[in-house]
Design a binder for these strands. Structure first.
Length: 377
RNA sequence: GGGGGUGCGCCGGAGUUGGAGAGCCGGGCCAGACUGUAAAUCUGGUGACUUUGUCUGAAUAGGUUCGAAUCCUAUCACCCCCA
């Protein structure tokens, strides 16, 4: 049974600490969820996810997993948990983000979205019902409603029509959820998604509609698609003010460490983002002292730990000079160490946020931390 | 010791039948970007300087020519063959 318990509320901000229960275990919020699009968090072993990074929940992606390995294999394996062996909670995105990211090769109509596969060009239609059915087969604990993530900038008419379409699709997702059940003997929970671009009246309407759907948790989509950070914060603030307090709020696709800290302060409980893993593979490290481009020449003879303040094994064990060497020589271990480090930093960051919310000094800690994490070293 | 061949960018290629070069393609190097992952990807820079441009530059030194990376001479380096 999916539950959310609100444990503490920060006196000086809207930040909250809570706990989610799922069939695969509990999640302490606020939380960051590493992205594992293809059923793997790129470059990271699950043992590292558990013991070094302390990930409590990871993501998978409906669109990508549907294409490969495909539903037949996933069903035979007993869902994605059975396939990749991850024992803890999982969440799947519905493919809604691919409506945005693969916009050059898809067509939207009332019924759904037809994608041209980025792998072989074949044609595949996702409807809200289909997105639910596929996510039932993947077997994630939390499954996302099928939505359209509109681009930024986006004119008012487009944003309004898109939002209304997403709302109609939500009704179909909810209906399909009610008609079906978990394939593997445990419950799956649907999160609907607020849209409306950066238009306050649309966001209000959408947040009210999503709240009224009465699902156990709610998500905010359509942000971190290129809009100024201030717009992201204003929209998140507004929407959090409307979404119910007693249910978790998931801000999709966000973000940088400072984005996450600011949005925790606005009342967000769950985050996911590809930045810590993608940027790690590209040599960008997030540390307690600021941002490092480990490929830069200035680290070539710096034998200090990647991040002495990060208790993660990889951050302590390897020096900046060595990690730079690995990245420069394109050794596979380089991106692995960097990914391990960045994710452990993200999980450390949200863990600290939670600790300070409970201790009652979150607001002042956050102000100090925001300054530190965005420094360029 | 004799004969033949090749020399331009940090490296490797392409190009050259006397006619526009700071200049093609890779790599390296130096930076930058990345936000519900078509991303171990992409973009820019990489002779010098007083930078809307100017100067130097095809192994080195000369020569022929209106004009030379291209032809000639010498020297140097490397490669191949013969002894």
């Amino acid at each position: 049974m999916f539950t959310f318990q609100l444990q503490h509320t920060d006196p000086k901000s809207a930040a909250r600490a809570g706990q989610i229960e799922t069939a695969h275990g509990s999640i302490q919020t606020p939380i960051f969820m590493p992205v594992g699009t293809l059923g793997t968090v790129k470059g990271v072993h699950q043992r590292e996810l558990e013991s070094d990074i302390k990930a409590q929940i990871i993501l998978g992606n409906t669109y990508h997993l549907y294409l490969r390995p495909g539903l037949e294999i996933l069903e035979q394996a007993g869902g994605l948990h059975g396939f990749n062996g991850w024992k803890r909670p999982m969440l799947t995105d519905s493919g809604g983000y691919q409506v945005y990211s693969l916009s050059a090769q898809r067509k939207i109509n009332e019924e759904g979205v037809t994608f041209r596969s980025h792998i072989d060009g074949s044609s595949h239609t996702f409807t809200p019902e289909r997105a639910i059915d596929i996510q039932r087969i993947i077997g994630a604990d939390i499954i996302m409603a099928f939505d359209e993530c509109p681009p930024y900038p986006c004119d008012y008419e487009y944003a309004k029509n898109s939002m209304e379409l997403t709302h109609r699709w939500l009704d179909r997702c909810v209906k399909r959820m009610a008609e079906t059940g978990g394939k593997y003997g445990y419950e799956q929970t649907l999160f609907p998604i607020v849209q409306g671009s950066t238009y306050p009246d649309l966001r209000r309407k959408s947040a009210e509609t999503i709240a009224a759907a009465g699902q156990p948790g709610n998500a905010i989509g359509g942000l971190s698609v290129g809009e100024p950070a201030e717009d992201m914060y204003e929209t998140t603030d507004q929407v959090c003010g409307i979404l119910p307090k007693d249910k978790p709020r998931y801000l999709m696709g966000v973000g940088t460490p400072e984005n996450i800290l600011e949005c925790i302060a606005l009342g967000v409980d769950m985050f996911d983002c590809v930045l810590p893993t993608r940027n790690a593979r590209h040599g960008m490290l997030y540390t307690s002292e600021g941002i490092i481009n480990i490929k830069n020449a200035k680290w070539k003879d710096d034998f200090s730990a990647v991040d002495a303040n990060n208790p993660c094994y990889a951050s302590q064990q390897y020096s900046k000079a060595y990690l730079r060497h690995l990245m420069h020589t394109k050794e596979l271990l380089g991106p692995q160490i960097a990914s391990l480090h960045n994710l452990s930093f993200y999980l450390w960051l949200v863990g600290e946020a939670r600790r300070h919310i409970i201790a009652g000094d979150f607001a002042s800690w956050k102000e100090e931390m925001v300054k530190r994490v965005q420094r360029r070293l």
